[in-house]
Nucleic acid binder design. Structure first.
Lengths: 156, 156
DNA sequence: AGGTGAGGGTTTGATTTTCCAACTCACCGG
DNA sequence: CCGGTGAGTTGGAAAATCAAACCCTCACCT
């Protein structure tokens, strides 16, 4: 995700610069599931080996994954999520939720996630302050840096 | 995001096939903010015009955006989010939240979002059933379709 | 000692995408 | 008639992706 003169300083863009390249989030999905070995990642993500290699390097250097030796002689490695990597799981969950609902009508899901409370997880984004589920109409963008001249009714 | 033989049927991958290409989510960000005109999108996302054109076509065809005529003579268009598009905002919020925390230490944020409850929005993903914030340790993946052979301790 | 196979990659060359600048077309304002 | 705006399209160079082949280190079998 190299050159891009995004005139907008933006954490969304910055995060995508780390995990927005093709396969990166699928790699993270697998690593969070515990499938952190190279050949598993090739099989489960469908990424070409050279691309996977590049993505892993990038994610390790960005502090999202770590490379761990799980066997000397023969040397074998495994990738695991860092704390920062685990904190990207909300992104995976919201992506999954949208796909489950809009691309599969909520039926025939290939995988579900069970929450410790007992049921299938339905991730809901709430406001940390009041605890209410967040709806578009309740949001107002507050530009803080130059480059953020809003024109429209504004909400993100 | 053409050819990819992802051996895993997965809603995350499917969603990324819709909005995972470079610039797509930045376009959605702008459209959700109300900045839905072509030249605004060029300026605010930094996307080359031809790429932007392709992304807009794709997002409209996928039902994430609609193209609206806001002036005949001269013909001028504007892109707006559909309901499905608005429902992708949780993805944007979780991406923003991660970037704010991990890429900027939570300081000097270029933009904040205010929630109707009064404070700056801190998006938290919770379990729809019990309402608790979701933590990695509380999750268990439940494969439902073939292709989902888990090996590790498993959680997503 | 030789063959086979797994794991974890790198190399090579063809194919796709992206990038960027220039160009179009339709209209409006002076 | 001239310049400018909005919404794109076009053409060619540069970069990223793809698939397959290759490499290296060991372990195991016989």
């Amino acid at each position: 995700m190299a050159a891009m003169k995004d005139p907008r300083p933006c954490s969304i863009a910055d995060t995508l610069a780390v995990v927005g390249e093709k396969y990166s989030l699928l790699v993270l999905r697998e690593v969070c599931l515990g499938n952190g070995r190279f050949d598993q990642l090739v099989r489960n993500t469908g990424a070409p080996r050279d691309i996977l290699s590049a993505r892993l390097r990038r994610l390790v250097e960005a502090g999202v994954l770590t490379k761990r030796l799980y066997s000397e002689r023969p040397q074998r490695f495994e990738y695991r999520p860092t704390q920062a990597g685990l904190e990207l799981e909300p992104v995976l969950m919201t992506l999954k939720e949208w796909g489950d609902r809009h691309l599969r009508n909520g039926t025939d899901l290939p995988m579900t996630v069970e929450h410790s409370c007992g049921g299938a997880l339905v991730p809901v984004v709430t406001c940390g302050a009041c605890g209410d589920p967040v709806r578009h109409e309740d949001l107002t963008a507050r530009p803080q840096a130059p480059g953020w001249t809003l024109t429209g009714p504004t909400a993100a």
